[in-house]
């Protein structure tokens, strides 16, 4: 029975990777160094994003769009422009949210899940996701992407996010898309387009 289950698991595992053409990275240290070098050279990113939220229970996919800005070390502005206006700014450990003109502010440190999500977003932008003690990290590749799979080790995060998949373009080592799989079959897929790297961003972007 045990052998049967292992065989069944392996067949699913390899079928899944066969379909998506991803295989485990052989030289993890080399890829880790590449991503680390990219992270060190990165000072800022500006990009558009396209977000799809699939809800299995409702069989509905919600699409939203917006822009984001990231400035080293930890400044982030995440702005939805469609279908609603919603802005999240994280700067110096303070989160500011503007929801259709209503503003609120709180500390990242007081909110463990927000802190984790913030760490993930910032780490993914910078590319330093390999050395992360909060996740079980696995690295795969195909001809186009490096795929970093992160499984949260902390319960409060794993209740919300089952696994994250981050796709880095092999040519530029920049992040192309992130997929967050939830414990049920829901997921959020974020695609980044029109990226501008290391172009100056006015400080006013990181305030509401």
């Amino acid at each position: 029975m045990k052998t049967f289950l292992i065989t069944l698991f392996c067949s699913f595992y390899f079928t899944a990777y066969g379909q998506s053409d991803f295989r485990p990275v052989q030289d993890i240290d080399a890829v880790g160094r590449k991503l680390d070098n990219m992270a060190k050279s990165l000072n800022s990113i500006q990009s558009d994003f396209h977000q799809e939220k699939y809800m299995d229970f409702l069989d509905v996919t919600l699409v939203s769009k917006g822009k984001f800005w990231f400035q080293k070390e930890n400044s982030l502005r995440w702005q939805y422009t469609e279908p609603y206006n919603y802005i999240v700014v994280i700067n110096d450990g303070v989160v500011q949210i503007s929801d259709d003109g209503k503003d609120q502010e709180f500390q990242v440190k007081g909110n463990r899940i927000f802190e984790q999500v913030n760490n993930i977003i910032v780490a993914s932008m910078k590319g330093d996701v390999i050395d992360n003690d909060d996740f079980d990290v696995r690295l795969f590749e195909n001809d186009q992407y490096y795929l970093v799979r992160l499984k949260p080790l902390k319960r409060e995060v794993s209740q919300v996010i089952h696994e994250m998949e981050m796709y880095f373009e092999k040519t530029s080592l920049q992040i192309s898309k992130i997929r967050m799989n939830e414990p049920n079959d829901d997921y959020t897929l974020i695609r980044y387009t029109n990226r501008k790297i290391n172009e100056p961003i006015p400080a006013s972007v990181f305030t509401l």
């Binding site: 069989d59 919600l62 699409v63 279908p83 997921y187």
Partner: peptide, 12 residues
């Protein structure tokens, strides 16, 4: 009410 792009047929 939100006017949004919704797809309730195609699974991704």
């Amino acid at each position: 009410k939100l006017q949004t792009e919704v797809d309730s047929r195609d699974k991704h």
